[in-house]
Design a protein around this nucleic acid. Structure first.
Length: 264
DNA sequence: TATAATGTTCTCGT
DNA sequence: AACGAGAACATTAT
């Protein structure tokens, strides 16, 4: 669940349905996913308080507890924030369960335990400490070019580098590259102005549209490459076979016909 | 049963 | 220094 669109969808849902509800009880059922300070103080900070604001930067979610501090949520490879009313709807791998006084609940579901919970006094300071780049939906065309077009290296890892741009992961970078017509291994030092335009434009369109879809719980359209990241699949645009390769340890999927940038 | 999976962070080599 | 490969982390699904 966790690239920018999924985290943004969670932010919107929490903003609508999770704020200003009194917290009656909080249980950190899997303390090992919480950093030391959170492990020690999170339950007490939550109990009797309420969430007063939600923010997102890249793939990181921030929930303000009363006047502070903020709960910082990193999802890792799996997970979601689940809002539910009936206790039996609690997700199977809930790591933090919050009971509202009105009877509703919110849980941090994180099956693989690769997520992290932290506390911070200031989200901006946390972003700076983590050395995160500008959010992918905030970064302008000029800054985007400055960071993506480097002297050397491949374009896909540059898009996924959270220190350059925050929010894009393995799956959405494939979609962005597909629409921009670039191979994952294309040389980022050789990107033309037109290709940078296309990348920046498609990044915004893909992430924006996906966030809207995820917010509604809708599937991604069949016309997206992301619906075809599996062996034997066909390109939704040209019908040709999709291919995959390894790029910095991850599997990259692409259409060799539609993405005709030269391979290195 | 072996393999891969939406992320981050580390080491090691270039 | 920047980059890339590979491993580790923990668990599930195919």
């Amino acid at each position: 669940m966790p690239e920018l669109p999924e985290v943004e969808a969670a932010r919107r849902r929490l903003s609508r349905k999770g704020l200003n509800r009194e917290i009656r009880d909080a249980a950190l059922c899997t303390p090992e996913i919480a950093e030391a300070t959170a492990r020690k103080h999170l339950e007490k900070a939550l109990t009797g308080s309420r969430f007063t604001a939600v923010k997102r930067h890249g793939k990181v979610l921030f929930l303000c507890i009363g006047d502070g501090p903020w709960l910082v949520i990193h999802f890792g490879m799996t997970g979601e924030v689940a809002l539910y009313e009936a206790p039996e709807d609690r997700p199977r791998h809930a790591r933090l369960i919050i009971d509202f006084a009105d009877g509703g609940h919110v849980a941090f579901d994180n099956p693989r335990k690769l997520g992290r919970l932290e506390l911070t006094e200031d989200p901006s300071a946390h972003i700076e400490q983590q050395d995160l780049g500008p959010d992918a939906l905030e970064i302008g065309r000029a800054a985007f070019a400055r960071v993506v077009r480097g002297p050397r290296g491949m374009v896909k890892p540059a898009l996924m580098d959270q220190k350059k741009i925050a929010g894009i992961g393995n799956e959405y970078s494939d979609e962005i590259l597909f629409r921009a017509g670039l191979r994952p291994k294309a040389d980022r030092g050789a990107l033309s102005e037109d290709q940078l335009d296309a990348l920046h434009d498609q990044m915004r369109k893909v992430l924006g549209a996906a966030a809207d879809l995820r917010e509604r719980g809708a599937a991604l359209p069949d016309s997206w490459l992301m619906a075809h990241r599996e062996k034997g699949a066909r390109c939704p645009r040209c019908g040709g076979a999709v291919k995959h390769c390894k790029v910095s340890g991850r599997t990259a999927w692409f259409c060799p016909a539609c993405q005709d940038t030269p391979d290195p």
